[in-house]
């Protein structure tokens, strides 16, 4: 009975969405195949946009320093040949031009294809296999090309104040990754909200062959980019540390000190229950005459003594105390 009461509203929801989608405007059918008309024709009607585009890197290359016939086409390289558009007297969506506006109705695949003609190498090599591509993200969801913004032509601007720098990239990624954006404001954090790091320092949003679209081949190799001192190898390794830094740390931000996922000593107690002392759930202050205060509960907890927890190269460092 419960399933019936869930299914009925679900059906109505889908029906409503379908009707909504069906009422969306459809593109008119094209006439004869279009041909290229040249930049000057585009400029005649779209002068302000042309002027802004000419100040971007792509604009400088296409309009002033083209290296081949494809780049010489400039505007029509991305928007498609414009003869039908011109013949019809212009207008939004007229003449089969590819538009990149949010309300254009174009699929991400159609919008991305002009970009991928050139940008399917380097950091974009893995785009077609990426999670973002499979979720129907368009390049223009993150980038804007018609005017100069940030160095990466992101759709948002970096906000620079004397009190700090708020990078455009964090706002762009934060459009969808709401939880991660909120985590950056946690007490223990890396310097992203201060503008010293950005998401793409660790992740490649265009795709990579690595988990979570990381730039490096493993989580640890990613962290070693800045924290090379922990790379080792060590004489005495701490295996869960070697496998993944995220066994203990939450890199996006944590309410616990040192980006720890779980407050210590419980973090260590999750694994180290059987050996020696840490299993005792000691109080911070003594509860009775026979139970004294616990050095495991205050200050740096287990690392008050076991400070070399990432690994030790000392012959006597088996217990990570030397």
């Amino acid at each position: 009975m419960r399933r019936f009461f869930l299914a009925v509203p679900a059906c109505f929801l889908f029906l409503g969405l379908y009707l909504l989608a069906s009422s969306a405007e459809k593109k008119p059918a094209e006439s004869s195949p279009a041909t290229y008309v040249g930049n000057e024709v585009c400029q005649a009607c779209h002068a302000p946009a042309f002027e802004k585009f000419s100040n971007t890197v792509m604009g400088r290359i296409f309009l002033f320093n083209p290296r081949n016939e494809t780049e010489k086409r400039a505007c029509e390289n991305c928007h498609g040949p414009g003869s039908n558009h011109v013949a019809a007297g212009g207008g939004k969506g007229v003449g089969g031009m590819i538009t990149f506006r949010k309300d254009s109705g174009e699929s991400a695949e159609v919008q991305n294809q002009p970009c991928l003609t050139c940008h399917e190498r380097g950091i974009q090599t893995y785009w077609k296999a990426s999670t973002h591509a499979s979720r129907g993200l368009a390049c223009v969801n993150c980038h804007t090309l018609m005017e100069k913004t940030s160095g990466k032509q992101l759709a948002k601007m970096t906000d620079i104040t004397p009190f700090g720098v708020h990078r455009a990239e964090i706002e762009v990624c934060g459009q969808c990754h709401l939880q991660r954006k909120a985590q950056l404001l946690r007490s223990s954090h890396m310097p992203l909200r201060e503008g010293k790091m950005v998401c793409s320092d660790c992740h490649n949003p265009h795709g990579s062959p690595n988990p979570a679209q990381l730039r490096q081949n493993s989580v640890n190799e990613n962290c070693y980019t800045c924290h090379a001192e922990r790379r080792g190898p060590f004489l005495w390794e701490h295996p869960p540390v070697l496998e993944s830094c995220t066994n203990c740390h939450e890199p996006h931000g944590s309410v616990n000190d040192r980006l720890l996922k779980v407050t210590d000593p419980r973090l260590c107690t999750q694994c180290h229950i059987h050996t020696r002392h840490p299993a005792t759930p000691r109080p911070l202050r003594p509860l009775s005459p026979s139970v004294g205060p616990s050095v495991f509960a205050f200050n740096r907890s287990c690392t008050n003594c076991h400070s070399q927890v990432h690994g030790s190269n000392h012959p006597s460092g088996k217990f990570y105390t030397r």
Partner: peptide, 15 residues
């Protein structure tokens, strides 16, 4: 000298 209940050790010898 972390605070203790009456009758207890004032601190562990090691701390």
């Amino acid at each position: 000298d972390i605070e203790t209940p009456a009758g207890g050790p004032t601190f562990s010898s090691s701390i």
